[in-house]
Structure formats: structure tokens, C-alpha cells
């Protein structure tokens, strides 16, 4: 079985986001870029499934400009077997990304597609669900554990009310939540090895995907600021202050 894993290049989770003064976006100039943290968890899970002998190959896929090859190389260094970059200069929205993945699926015929539950830049949380719809296959979103049993999988999902268990037939799309695992650290020799692993570059035309129906995004603004708080001297004052505000 092959496993496809989606990789998105995003502003690192530790960077303080600065909105550009003209409202056209956020400052990414000289800013550290990383693999979307949820995608790292997705890849870690795929690698563990392969290491358990339940998959033969893990392929990382990203849609973006050449700069996203850096994140694909990180994926290869973590242990993915090969990478596919779908080249585009446009910031694709989830439906287009889902269409790209659908075409890659037609070429690769994977048994499982594992994606992050959302990207930490646009926070859309749509791609996995959309891909499952286009592919007409099961979706298991916000997964915190999965067990492959031959032709099916048992998934535990993190939902607001607790933990939901579902059973899905493969092939299927799974989107992973934070609790699924803790991704491995990349070691230097693996980074060297990753440089020799295959990275295929495809265009949207190669895949026959037209980018349509994009939602116009504009007017980036910083969020409203919190008002300046007070400093209390001791615990008694803290308790008094909380009681005054009706919080205790």
C-alpha cells in the first residue's frame, strides 16, 4: 500500500505574525518557514504505518512554488520515500488543492491519504473533507489514533463531545489532530540522504487541474488589541480582584 501525505509550507508556528501596512497580507519577508505542524504529524503517522509493515511507500506531496521543495526535503529527511511538487505560483485554496490531490491519487493509487487537520496560516480545515467528497471515499477528520486492519481502519476522532470511534474502508482520507503522535526529529545524515531521494515536479497542466472558484481574500488587519491590565501585589489582592469581577 502507498500512503500519500500532504505537506504545506507555512510561517513557522513560533513567528510573531505581522500584518503588512497596506493590508495585502502578512509579512513573510525573511520569516522562518516550516512544514505545517499538523502535516508533520500526518507524515509521522504514515512512517509508523510503513515501519509496522502495513505500507510499502510514503509519498509527500505539496502544491506551491519552488520554495516548497525545502519542506518536501524535510519530509524526505523524516523518512518519506519520494516527493511530488505540484508547481503553482498562485496560493491555491482548499478546493483546488483537493482537485490536485484527486489527480495525484489517479496516478499513484494510494490506499491512504493522510493530511493535517488544518494549516496554521489560513486555518481553513477543508482540504481533507473536500478530497474525500471528490474521491467519493470515507473521511476521518481530527484523528487522534488509527489502526489499520487489512482493508479497513479503526479511527478515533477528537470531537467536542469526547472521542468518537469510526471504522472506514480503505482507500480513505484521514486528517490528523495534535494528539496522534509526536513527530521525530530529523538527523543530519538523514538530511544528506534526503537530497538523493526523488522529487518529481508536475504542473497543474500536467494534472489537468484548472484553478477556479477562488474566494477573494483582502483587507488583512491586525486583531483588536486587549486593553492593558493591572499588576497586583499579592495573592490576597488577586483573589479580591477576581471576586470583584465576579470570577470566583
Amino acid at each position: 500500500m502507498k500512503i500519500l501525505v500532504g505537506i504545506k509550507r507555512v510561517v513557522d508556528y513560533n513567528v510573531r505574525i505581522r500584518v503588512l501596512p497596506d493590508g495585502s497580507g502578512v509579512d513573510t519577508d525573511g520569516v522562518k518557514m516550516s512544514v505545517n505542524p499538523f502535516d508533520e504529524i500526518a507524515l509521522e503517522e504514515a512512517l509508523r504505518i510503513k515501519e509496522a509493515g502495513k505500507a510499502d511507500e510514503v509519498i509527500v506531496v505539496s502544491a506551491g512554488g519552488d520554495e516548497c521543495q525545502q519542506q518536501l526535503r524535510t519530509g524526505l529527511a523524516m523518512g518519506a520515500d519520494r516527493a511530488i511538487q505540484v508547481q503553482t505560483s498562485e496560493a491555491l485554496q482548499p478546493l483546488s488543492v483537493a482537485r490536485v490531490f484527486q489527480k495525484v491519487i489517479e496516478r499513484e493509487d494510494p490506499g491512504l491519504v493522510i493530511l493535517g487537520k488544518q494549516a496554521i496560516d489560513d486555518d481553513n480545515s477543508q482540504t481533507a473533507q473536500m478530497l474525500a467528497a471528490l474521491w467519493d471515499r470515507p473521511q476521518a477528520t481530527f484523528a487522534s489514533s488509527m489502526e489499520i486492519n487489512g482493508e479497513s481502519a479503526t479511527i478515533i476522532r477528537e470531537v467536542d463531545a469526547g472521542l468518537e470511534t469510526i471504522e472506514i474502508d480503505l482507500p480513505a482520507v484521514v486528517s490528523v489532530d495534535l494528539r496522534m503522535n509526536e513527530p521525530r526529529f530529523v538527523k543530519l545524515p538523514d538530511i544528506m540522504k534526503a537530497k538523493r531521494k526523488p522529487l518529481e515536479v508536475l504542473s497543474l497542466e500536467d494534472l489537468g487541474v484548472a484553478v477556479t472558484d477562488q474566494i477573494a481574500v483582502s483587507h488583512f488587519t491586525p486583531p483588536p488589541q486587549r486593553e492593558k491590565g493591572i499588576i497586583v501585589e499579592d495573592t490576597a489582592q488577586l483573589v479580591q480582584e477576581l471576586k470583584n469581577r465576579g470570577l470566583l
Binding site: M130, A133, F142
Partner: peptide, 17 residues
């Protein structure tokens, strides 16, 4: 989690983001 699971699947079936 209910709506975030369901609505994108509907959106894709409607052909919209």
C-alpha cells in the same frame, strides 16, 4: 468539530470553496 467535519464535504459537492 461537527460543522468543520461536515460543511467542507458539502462545499466540495457544491463545487465551491
Amino acid at each position: 468539530t461537527f460543522g468543520r467535519d461536515l460543511m467542507p464535504r458539502i462545499a466540495a459537492l457544491c463545487g465551491v470553496n
